[in-house]
Design a protein around this nucleic acid. Structure first.
Length: 298
DNA sequence: AACCAGGTTATGC
DNA sequence: GCATAACATGGT
């Protein structure tokens, strides 16, 4: 076993991040007190790691067999991207403090990062899955999908699931996903999205070189991917600051609760507010989402 | 027991 | 264009 340290930046709370992440994570990660384990693919090969907070460092533990420079740097980059570690979020807090309604979040959610998901295929399938239904059910669907179609790897005596490969999902029949309680339409959408990723028509690399508008056009060209889903993918996986699923019902609820809008049709109010958070829109968005989950036990 | 959940599409005016 | 039904199940 080898360990790699990552320096913890200012305004970073491992506990807050893990707590928020664990809600929609399904069984993708294993949580122990103060640490998280997960398996990802690096160049097609399954690599598992454990991340633990140790003083001023996050410590990555990898199996000896993965002690290859290329693998180590990919895992490190994955984690830095996942936890948005390299960003100094101080400016965001200065902006938040200027708004009496949500300013309490600077203290209550201090150190919460916008948790991205570097795996774009997984993010897309998750976004389609979670359309319209409540989170409890959406997580149940994701868990069923991972258990049934994602292989798992052993890591310190426990099984860590990998998200299913696009190739695997592309070969499914609609009824296979219906059996897991996906709606017939979502089953169709997911299989065709998986096909696009499996045959290389679509990939993170291809999306990354496009402009924001081209990304929207490309993603919404997929059946089952509307403006909300396209923006969710851009926000969660492409690190695109313009990727904001502004029609989101959870967001609207949070905006109402904080008195930031007076009714859900107040689109100009929403636009105006987000314009004030230039460069930090996705942080505002995610902190508002976070507020819906209420306080965390400490 | 309705009605809404971190929406999208198909259909009808 | 804009309104409405259908989709799947869980929570309130």
């Amino acid at each position: 076993m080898i360990t790699i340290p990552i320096q913890i930046p200012k305004h970073f709370s491992f506990g807050e991040n893990l707590w928020f992440l664990s809600r929609e994570d399904g069984d993708r990660s294993a949580y122990q007190a103060g640490s998280i384990s997960r398996a990802i693919r690096v160049d097609g090969e399954a690599v598992s790691f454990t991340l633990t907070e140790k003083g001023q460092y996050l410590q990555i533990e990898l199996m000896d067999e993965h002690n290859v420079p290329q693998v180590v740097s990919t895992v490190k980059a994955y984690i830095e991207d996942w936890f948005d570690i390299k960003r100094n979020i101080e400016p965001f807090y200065r902006l938040l403090e200027a708004h009496p309604g949500p300013s309490y979040m600077v203290t209550d959610f201090n150190g919460l990062r916008v948790m991205g998901n570097p795996d774009t295929f997984e993010t897309l399938v998750w976004s389609i899955t979670s359309q319209q239904i409540n989170m409890t059910f959406a997580i149940k669907l994701k868990r069923a999908l991972c258990e049934k179609y994602g292989e798992s790897v052993e890591h310190h005596g426990r099984q860590l699931p990998l998200f299913p490969l696009s190739k695997t999902l592309a070969e499914l029949e609609v009824k296979d996903l219906q059996e897991l309680q996906f709606s017939r339409q979502k089953a169709t959408y997911i299989i065709s999205a998986a096909t696009a990723f499996a045959d290389g028509t679509l990939s993170k690399e291809k999306l990354m070189v496009l402009s924001s508008q081209e990304r929207i056009d490309t993603l919404t060209a997929l059946k089952g991917v509307g403006i909300w889903t396209a923006n969710a993918v851009m926000m969660q996986s492409l690190n695109d600051p313009s990727g904001l699923p502004l029609g989101d019902t959870g967001l609207l609820k949070a905006l109402l609760q904080h008195g930031l809008i007076i009714d859900k049709k107040d689109t100009t109010g929403i636009t105006t507010l987000f314009r004030q958070f230039d460069g930090w829109q996705s942080y505002l968005f995610n902190y508002l989402w976070r507020s819906l989950s209420g306080p965390r036990d400490r």
